[in-house]
Design a protein around this nucleic acid. Sequence first.
DNA 1: AGCGTGACTCTAT
DNA 2: GATAGAGCCACGC
Length: 144
Amino acid sequence: MTMAKQKRGHQPVPALANDPAITDLPGYHERVYEMVRRIPSGRVMTYGQIAEILGEGYTPRTIGFVMHAADEAVPWHRVINAQGACSTGRVLLPVDKQQRMLEAEGITFNERGRCDLARYRWSADEQDSAPTQTDESQPSLFAD
DNA sequence: AGCGTGACTCTAT
DNA sequence: GATAGAGCCACGC
């Protein structure tokens, strides 16, 4: 099946987008936080992915803006950029803080600080919280 | 009420 | 694949 890359714009979104537990939340920020809280340990979502699911005026940039104010109740470290890397360069945090937290959850990064989105990205539709198993005989599947 | 900023992303070089 | 430029929209000043 051709997994044609969806052009940005209004494409079909995951079923979670219709979940009133999220869409009916009153605050702009709260919808983002609730979405992030559902990301299982060891999985990640991208800013653009969250923005696309929430729709209604949410963009990757605004998601980042909201995440900047996230507190400890929100697993903010599970949100990374579309290239599989952490974007905390403009935040007052240790540069490798986010990556270390993700590695503690079992996510591996290559030498350029990027992880395999194809493996770790949570589609928000699947119920299983475990990432695709890796064959250790192919450690550099996504490197370079 | 306008302008600049930013935990981003896409497209073209 | 890395880099540059444009687009994006909520917020604060």
